[in-house]
Write a protein that binds this DNA or RNA. Structure first.
Lengths: 163, 163
DNA sequence: TCGCTCGTCGAATAAAGTTCGGCGGAGAGG
DNA sequence: CCTCTCCGCCGAACTTTATTCGACGAGCGA
């Protein structure tokens, strides 16, 4: 993970479809080397895949929400099952398994608040293992286009630069 | 947005780097048509971009958290500023602007719990416009590889199939 | 200093993206 | 019911790109 790898990672997060030549020139190496570097990043598991980003609004899903769910019994099996079931729903954008009062947080995108109400009341609140379901409307959700390197580095790696 | 467009969207979300020929064959159209369809999806804003997905753990960021922040004064300006500042931090994976007790939810990935503590205490809790900061550890975060179409369709579009 | 190793390079080859003229089906108007 | 028009689809030609692979050279250990 030298500076070149970081530059490649940064650029591929911004645009995963730029040509290999373009990428190579931008980071200052030969195309064949860029190809090899990118392959290595994939092989090492740093890059897990390339995906098209879709705008939910253009698909008629303009309402987003975060749904907190408290699950009882609080067993590994129950929570992992719920996580997978929620992730498989077409409404779901993401699922967090969290500490705190609630066990799971589900990020969904739906067409309307009426749809959201029916979804929550008919699909979630009815389940008896969900002892508490709380819904929060999401006004805005932004994701950085790139997941940059942390300021801490070298010998201070894994430690905080804010201490 | 016919069935072919949906198939293209589904496949490109799974793998944004498959060849156009492969995509064309899979959805049953000519490569030139697949290219035109994909272009149209981009032009219409359905596809907003192509991005490499990066695994935070391989970059030494194995701890994830959700940080709830209550902001006062609760002005549009203060909240939008905070949203943008948080999104620009290297630790940040995503920012939600939400209803409820808190105003903003920040999803971060950091190297350790010690790093998280310093980040929260030194970078966030010190700000006087943040009147409440609560941190929740994320055990697991999963995202569906594809954002599928909702069951409701045709004349029932925008309405819930669960009513 | 010598020899080994590994990353890099660049040219050759294979494969893919891209363009564009023409074809054909669907729908509107007569 | 017929005909005209329009639009999307197709496929071959062309351009650009990805990919392979043998060789070079810097860095390092012996």
């Amino acid at each position: 993970m030298d500076a070149v790898d970081q530059a490649i990672l940064r650029r591929l997060q911004r645009d995963g479809r730029q040509t290999n030549r373009e990428l190579a020139e931008a980071v200052g190496i030969a195309p064949s080397t860029a190809l090899e570097r990118t392959r290595a990043l994939r092989a090492r598991g740093v890059i897990t895949g390339f995906h098209a980003a879709v705008d939910p609004v253009t698909l008629g899903r303009s309402v987003q929400a975060l749904i907190s769910i408290r699950i009882r019994p609080q067993s590994r099996e129950a929570i992992e099952n719920t996580r997978d079931i929620m992730a498989a729903l077409p409404e779901t954008l993401g699922v967090f398994v969290v500490t705190g009062n609630e066990d799971i947080l589900v990020h969904v995108a739906v067409p309307s608040t009426a749809y959201l109400r029916d979804f929550v009341l008919d699909r979630l609140a009815r389940r008896k293992e969900f002892v508490d379901v709380r819904t929060t409307v999401v006004f805005d959700y932004v994701q950085p286009v790139e997941q940059s390197e942390l300021p801490a580095s070298e010998d201070r790696y894994r430690r905080s630069p804010y201490a």
